[in-house]
Design a binder for these strands. Structure first.
Lengths: 262, 262
DNA sequence: AGAATAGTGTCTATGAGACAGTATGAG
DNA sequence: CTCATACTGTCTCATAGACACTATTCT
């Protein structure tokens, strides 16, 4: 890493603050939602932001992100062996943002992480944040201004997120939309047992499209390793009882579940 | 970014050094190669490493990566408008590595970038690096120890890369292998004009497989926006003259060019 | 002529999308 | 009964992979 400088110039080393920011996504109702915290201090005081915090001296980036996630939501990172009381989430590194001036106070490089969680937990405000909530992604990004399809007429004007968090959130959402195509990650949005219909509603919420229930059923049950029947059935959605499944061992989907174009 | 700490703890802010490391890939002969520089100072003195350097105060991460790339190779980042003399390359952020102890001297967070370049330039050592070379990825990663297929019996023992650069390189290679499936990025390995056969050899080198020339031709010429004929022909590969193409405007390939499994 | 590469055509298996039709519960 | 959801089956079209065949150059 400290190689290839020409000429070698120690004065080029200047100290940065390094933080982790979290894009925590879940599906509530029929909408893709993200965790937002209200800022309790300047800059952007009172505005919504992504949760995050400094990386500490003894932890690596993934550990810092997992710690922040636990502080904000109580969620533990999915890890076979450690049984979590409140729920488990998928966590992965997203991208790093380090433009000069993205934080007016100092030079901050933020390593954003993406977390996918089931709907179970109620958000809990951590520490100095005055509040936390699950907000529909379309509200946070102000995507529905022209929307002819999504009928939204809420009073709340979409105050933009603090810092460059709108871009980070957009990048995280696009990563999630893309990854559930060719991986089994959509099950991270579901509780440990779920039906094919519930999994389909996850795909519909993340992609924002309607899917054919019959073709979807044939596809996901036909992909080896994606779903394993857990034996039980449920009728919590109404209608004929549906078979319950757990996530199978497969992480990569072959063939992929390509989202319909436009 | 500086939100959600509980309790708010200014002492948690400790200074990091932030660097960019580069995974620069090209196709030489029939092998995927990466740019490696020899370290001229401890730690890991004399060992091969990825090129990289500190992020300066006034530049963002992409600018720092582009500057390092130009210093090491003379390549300019692909950008319609700016005509580069030595050649252009694709550049994108890869991932960030920040484990404590990855650099024994201090806490360093490295934002790795991935660059894809055509074979034109000879590597030029920058500044304090005592040398630079294009090395086959399989040599740098020591992947060919058991290889029954790839006949390699070179004298050079694969001394592992310095720091955690082997992992960074592996991540970059995997990103490149995956991205040429569903994007037109493979053309970044080609000169401005190229034949279908040359493009196929790029895919074969990156994936390490043999592809059917006839199906490949039908596929790439049938994907709209991937290739546009430039009018000329060439016979530099021997055999019947081949039509020359340029990269089309499409960045995403639909349908994708899926690599054969196993 | 023979070797090498370029390019076209043809067959087959597989999967996606559209949609008919049946099964089983709640009210 | 009606309605909602679950599930199965069938048809058609597009595409991938395998491979025969022709075209054009070089040695």
């Amino acid at each position: 890493m400290i190689t290839g400088m020409s000429p070698y110039d120690p004065s080029a080393f200047l100290p940065f603050a390094v933080t982790v920011d979290l894009v925590v996504l879940t599906v509530r109702g029929h909408a893709l939602c993200a965790l937002a915290v209200r800022r309790g201090e300047p800059p952007f005081e009172g505005r919504w932001a992504l949760p995050g915090g400094f990386v500490r001296g003894e932890e690596n980036l993934a550990e810092a992100a997992a710690r922040e996630l636990a502080e904000e939501t109580g969620l533990c990172v999915q890890d076979p062996g450690s049984d979590a009381p409140t729920g488990t989430a998928h966590l992965e590194q997203l991208a790093t943002y380090g433009d000069p001036g993205r934080d007016p106070r100092m030079r901050v490089v933020s390593v954003a992480h993406l977390a996918l969680a089931p709907d179970l937990p109620a958000p809990r405000a951590g520490g100095d944040a005055e509040g936390a909530r699950w907000a529909p992604v379309r509200d946070l990004l102000g995507e529905d201004l022209i929307g002819g399809d999504g009928a939204r007429r809420d009073a709340e004007p979409p105050a933009p997120l603090a810092f460059d968090h709108a871009r980070i959130l957009a990048d995280g959402v696009e990563r999630a939309r893309s990854k559930i195509e060719y991986s089994s990650l959509a099950t991270a949005f579901c509780p440990s047992e779920f039906t094919v219909g519930e999994l389909r509603r996850v795909y519909e919420a993340v992609w924002g499209v309607a899917l054919d229930p019959r073709n979807f059923h044939r596809k996901v049950t036909g992909t080896p390793g994606f779903l394993v029947p857990s034996g039980g059935t449920t009728t919590r959605q109404g209608g004929r009882p549906a078979q319950l499944f757990r996530a199978g061992g497969a992480t990569v989907l072959n063939p992929p579940m390509l989202r319909p174009e436009i």
